[in-house]
């Protein structure tokens, strides 16, 4: 296995006095796809939000692409532009067109010329199969289309790693598929992905490893076949019997 691109070592995080993440250890290799699941409130979102430092941890180390996450602003900028993130609630900017949403980061962070940024954005919008919506506003799109815009927007930064926080759980069933198809394609192209999701079909299809979390810790991690057919831990078994 090549050098890990994400290295998390004995990381702990508290919200006030509430111990949300306890002694998390996790290494992710380049191109690896990881699916994280677990009951509500177990700390899945908090874990992946720590990876691009939307949340700050208090103990232990997180290293992304060899850069240590501490308070330093320089490191923060480097990491944010290497890591793309897709949210459950899309969080598109409602006052900007789809194209403007996608070109925001290339123009303002990477200082690309506008024409080049737009060309890239249109290519990526075509890749997520909504080439015709570029000049609409987010409010005019369906949920599935909005989430695909959000994916394209994150891809426009040309990130090395993509984080997904339950990208399909605010969507209607028929829209879930259109988003998952895009994610599968992305996985097949070799993107490093960390994905919080309860779409077990997706996990079986693309994941290299499935991680189960409860009470702020990683209870079990395993390859998908082993994880689903033969969970090692009673807690995992109980959880799987409820979601499958």
């Amino acid at each position: 296995m090549s050098d890990p691109v994400i290295r998390i070592n004995k990381m702990n995080k508290w919200f006030g006095n509430f111990h949300v993440l306890r002694d998390i250890n996790l290494n992710v290799a380049a191109g690896e796809k990881i699916v994280i699941c677990g009951p509500s409130g177990s700390g899945k979102s908090t874990l992946i939000r720590c990876i691009n430092r939307l949340e700050a941890h208090q103990e232990g180390e997180i290293e992304v692409e060899g850069i240590t996450l501490d308070g330093s602003l320089k490191n923060l900028e480097d990491i944010r532009s290497n890591v793309g993130m897709v949210f459950q609630q899309f969080n598109l900017f409602p006052h900007m067109t789809v194209l403007e949403n996608c070109t925001l980061s290339p123009i303002w962070v990477q200082q690309k010329p506008k024409a080049e940024a737009e060309k890239l954005a249109r290519e990526l919008l075509a890749r997520v199969r909504i080439p015709d919506q570029a000049d609409k506003y987010p409010g005019q799109l369906s949920g599935g289309q909005q989430q695909r815009v959000a994916i394209a927007r994150a891809l426009c930064m040309n990130p090395r790693i993509m984080l997904f926080d339950e990208p399909t759980s605010a969507l209607d069933p028929e829209m879930i598929k259109e988003v998952l198809d895009v994610m599968v394609e992305l996985a097949e192209e070799g993107m490093t992905m960390l994905c919080v999701t309860h779409e077990m079909g997706f996990a079986r299809q693309v994941a290299d490893r499935v991680i189960f979390m409860d009470e702020g810790e990683i209870v079990e991690e395993n390859a998908p076949e082993a994880f689903f057919s033969n969970p090692e831990n009673e807690r995992t078994q109980l959880f799987l019997s409820q979601v499958l």
Partner: peptide, 14 residues
Amino acid sequence: SKGQREAAAALGLP
């Protein structure tokens, strides 16, 4: 909403 700020931060905007 807080999500708007987080999305901007995640895109690397200062």
